[in-house]
Amino acid sequence: MPLSEHEQQMLEQMEQALASEDPRFAHQMRGGTTLAVRRRRLVLGILGVVIGLALVVVGVNTTMWVGAVGFAVMVAAAAYAFTPVKEGDASAQAAARTKGRGPTPPKGSSSFMHKLDERWERRERGQ
């Protein structure tokens, strides 16, 4: 049985209150997919900076253009590594699907609400 509009608003308010009171717990309830995406971006960024630095060193010994390309690679890799990950990022959703965390929540609902719905359904089935 779907929730009424009033009940949905109340649940959204409760979720916002939880997120403001204890953001760390709310983040854990949403899932750690953004952490995995952040870690992967950081590793790729560091790798890009190292490759760019190698190109800069090669460019010093050969031609200026190779060094300029190396510098551009370093800057782009650093920007990629330290760009914040959005919660609704497609790569975060793809990472959640590949980890086998179950079905993704319906469009327009948060993963916190999806988990609450799953728990409620399990209780109703008696599991």
Results as ranks from 00 to 15, higher is better:
M74I: 06
T33K: 10
E21Y: 04
G126C: 11
T104F: 05
A81H: 09
A81V: 02
P84D: 12
H114E: 10
S20Y: 05
T63P: 06
R101C: 09
D22Y: 02
K86E: 13
L47G: 07
V58L: 15
A90Y: 07
Q9N: 13
T98I: 15
Y80V: 00
L55W: 05
G32S: 14
H6M: 03
K107C: 06
Q13N: 03
V37P: 06
A77S: 11
K99Y: 14
L11R: 10
S109V: 15
R101W: 15
R123S: 12
F112E: 15
A76H: 05
K107Q: 13
K115L: 02
E124F: 01
A79K: 01
A54F: 06
R122I: 10
V73W: 08
M10N: 04
M74T: 09
R123D: 14
G48T: 00
M113Q: 13
W120C: 11
G100M: 14
G31H: 12
P84A: 12
V75I: 09
M29R: 14
Q127W: 15
T62D: 12
R119V: 11
R125F: 05
M1E: 13
G31Y: 14
E5M: 06
V69Q: 06
R39M: 12
A77D: 01
Y80A: 08
E118D: 09
H6C: 01
A77W: 04
P84Y: 07
L47V: 09
S110L: 11
A94D: 09
T62K: 10
R119P: 00
A96C: 08
